[in-house]
Amino acid sequence: MTAYTQQLTFFREWIKHPLEMASVLPSGRPLARMMVAAMPAQADCVIELGAGTGVITEALLQHGVSAAQLLVLEMNATLHGILRRRFPQAHVLCADARHVNELARRTGVLAPEGADAILSSLGLLNMPPELQHDILSAAFAVLRPGGVFVQYTYGWRSPLDERVCRQLRLRCNRVGMVWRNLPPAQVYTYRRDDG
């Protein structure tokens, strides 16, 4: 599937489901590279939330993440079908991110200590705090101690509500801005503050 075909398919899905899609276009490769670079150096077990057409999925596999230890969740049925065809060796599920902890355990993807990283393309900025809390709570239930949740946003601040950060004891770190993405995006990491 060419980049143009991916963009066209993504845009069509946005027209059909504008409230469910975080963007009108899929992530660009520079953004995917920054997301992958924000993971721990030796990340083996990785989960991706809201994979779209698979730009970040492809970057994860090129980085060396094994398809057998990669769980990919996408709630849009059309995009899920594309991901299944593009990445047949990965665990690609059509599912809600609020159930990531149950799904990760059921698929057997998780290492005994948990996932090293979760990379998210979900539109957190547009979600109510309660939904953000449910998703991040489920995500941190499967992240290993020291694991990282990587999120990008088109907004000018952290997309995660401050109350949710406090409730879940999360530390937020701005990784950087990707100007060569349409639209430009910022990348943030969240870690559990157990100190």
Rank of each mutant, 00 (worst) to 15 (best):
M1S: 09
T2N: 12
A3P: 00
Y4L: 14
F10L: 06
F11A: 15
F11M: 11
F11N: 12
E13K: 15
E13N: 15
W14P: 02
W14E: 13
H17S: 04
P18D: 14
P18G: 12
P18T: 10
L19Y: 04
A22D: 00
V24C: 03
V24P: 00
L25A: 09
L25P: 00
S27E: 06
R29G: 02
R29E: 14
P30G: 01
P30L: 01
L31I: 10
A32E: 04
R33A: 11
M34V: 03
M34N: 05
M34L: 15
A38E: 10
M39P: 09
P40L: 12
P40I: 08
D44N: 13
C45T: 14
V46A: 01
I47E: 08
V55G: 13
I56A: 07
A59W: 00
L60F: 07
Q62R: 15
H63T: 11
A67I: 05
A68W: 09
Q69T: 15
L71P: 04
V72M: 03
M75D: 01
A77Y: 08
A77D: 15
H80Q: 11
G81Q: 07
L83T: 00
R86L: 00
Q89K: 15
H91C: 10
H91T: 15
L93T: 03
A95C: 09
H99Y: 04
A104G: 12
A104H: 07
A104S: 12
R106H: 11
V109W: 03
V109F: 05
V109I: 11
L110F: 02
A111T: 05
E113Y: 08
D116I: 05
D116E: 09
D116T: 07
A117F: 06
A117N: 11
A117W: 04
A117M: 07
L119I: 15
S120E: 07
S120Y: 04
S121H: 02
L124D: 01
N126G: 11
N126M: 13
M127I: 04
P128R: 10
P129Q: 14
E130Y: 11
E130S: 13
L131Y: 04
L131T: 15
D134A: 12
L136H: 00
S137K: 06
S137R: 04
A138H: 01
A139Q: 03
F140E: 03
A141D: 15
L143T: 07
R144V: 03
Q151F: 03
T153D: 03
Y154M: 02
G155F: 15
G155D: 06
R157P: 01
S158Y: 06
P159S: 02
L160T: 13
D161Y: 11
D161N: 14
E162K: 10
V164F: 14
C165G: 13
L168K: 13
L168V: 05
L168G: 01
R169L: 10
R171S: 14
R171G: 14
C172L: 14
N173P: 02
N173D: 12
N173H: 12
V175N: 00
W179I: 15
N181R: 07
N181D: 04
P183F: 05
P183E: 11
P184V: 02
P184N: 06
A185H: 05
Y188T: 09
T189N: 07
R191A: 01
R192A: 12
R192M: 06
